[in-house]
Design a protein around this nucleic acid. Structure first.
Lengths: 237, 237
DNA sequence: ATAAAGGTGCCAAAATCTGTCACCTTTTAT
DNA sequence: ATAAAAGGTGACAGATTTTGGCACCTTTAT
């Protein structure tokens, strides 16, 4: 994550949580305490009013009056927003979801055409299904943040992805696959991919993927994946 | 000069001069031609529409419409997007959530101040908690689309809301309440409200609300609601 | 054909950013 | 009074990113 994204994340976290501590921020955004302190200095330089209380029980908070600059969204950001709205729809909040859609439509319209093409390509690989009814959340692993950037490039540039996978039985294996689609059955996320070594489609739960890594210089042709009613009923072509 | 300042300078120059060439920009901002080209790519990534004409007599220019993106979104649309992203976070998709956050931060920054005030007011009433672990989705009702518009006005204008409610036991009652907050524990949505007839706070599951209706001309003062760990632990003040 | 414009890929050098560590100050709970 | 928890500073090596330079390509007007 670059410093700009990180600083946006900090502002956003402060907005959301009202007050927090530097150590907590460091944990949240995955940076060191020192780096957060430096970011806070940068943000203050830009005019953000960030209050700091030293001492036990202290912390930092953001004066909500501080704002500036215009909206310049990247493709990945729009994609993430779309995923957010889709999960909401999956959660059954349809009225709000349709409103969010109309907002997204406006945002999409404003994207330049080449960015729109990238976005479409990402969206072609995305399927969000209904909420999975019986999942024990406490046993869910967390997704590796490195997956994020790896996926984006894998889908956009059609690159193979290498990673270590721990299956439902706990058995580990190393994979090198061709990512075809992303399937979200909240709160579970799956990567649907062609596994050349096994000459077939496989799906991988994202929280069980570790050490993701792009295989540069080896593109592949996309295959068709059809979703009907969740992961059990996928049809591959 | 860092890259951000330089990119701002490029945008300013393009705004001012209308059209120019990359070589001239490089001279103006004191960077190499290569660097300017890279900056242009970055700016386009962020949504600036920069036109380029190759060939003798060509050059680059900035489409003045480039930055309208977020300005045209309504408060409710932005609010819906925020709810979507929040549900995503609640679902555990944290890496994507932080990206979506940075997008939202940009959108918020671009809102005019009066809209921003409305948005804050709506957000003040919103609390999104963690995913509820054991809910039988198939028994969830769907939310009445009319609730949406009713809620927005109720929260923004501090109007009372009338509706028919069917409680967990299936018993029906007519309510007229002062909406104080919206609590989302995906996939469940609750309205937290002061019920004057019962002189106390009550929470209502939104999919059990029917026939919502605003009571015009009767505003109320907001009360404080504190959330700690879900609906069981709410504190009212 | 040529010149002038935008655009891409590559590489090494330069600059910047980041984490770590040691240490300081302020505030509050005990 | 003391300890613990919070914010804050300085220094430095190592990692990462940015930059400039170069070769070379495409497009367009003259």
């Amino acid at each position: 994550m670059n410093s700009r994204l990180r600083q946006d994340a900090i502002v956003r976290t402060l907005r959301r949580s009202g007050a927090t501590t530097i150590a907590a921020l460091a944990r949240d955004v995955g940076a060191s305490r020192r780096t957060i302190l430096r970011d806070l200095i940068a943000l203050r330089d830009e005019g953000y009013l960030i209050d700091a209380e030293p001492g036990r029980g202290g912390g930092i908070s953001l004066d909500p009056g501080s704002l500036q600059t215009a909206a310049r969204l990247t493709v990945t950001e729009v994609f993430a927003l779309i995923i957010g709205v889709s999960s909401m729809r999956a959660g059954g909040s349809l009225p709000f979801a349709s409103l969010a859609d109309s907002g997204l439509a406006k945002i999409e319209k404003a994207l330049p055409s080449d960015k729109l093409r990238d976005l479409r390509r990402l969206l072609d690989c995305l399927y969000v299904g209904p909420l999975a009814p019986q999942v024990d959340i406490s046993r869910l692993g967390s997704m590796d943040p490195a997956l994020l950037t790896a996926f984006e490039r894998a889908f956009l540039d059609r690159l193979r992805l290498k990673f270590r996978y721990r299956d439902a039985g706990g058995k580990e294996s190393d994979r090198e696959v061709e990512p075809q689609a992303m399937l979200i059955l909240p709160p579970l996320w799956y990567l649907v991919a062609w596994d050349p070594a096994r000459d077939g489609f496989r799906h991988f739960r994202m929280d069980r993927i570790r050490y993701p890594e792009l295989v540069e210089g080896l593109t592949f042709r996309p295959r068709r994946v059809l979703f009907e009613a969740g992961v059990e009923r996928m049809r591959y072509a």
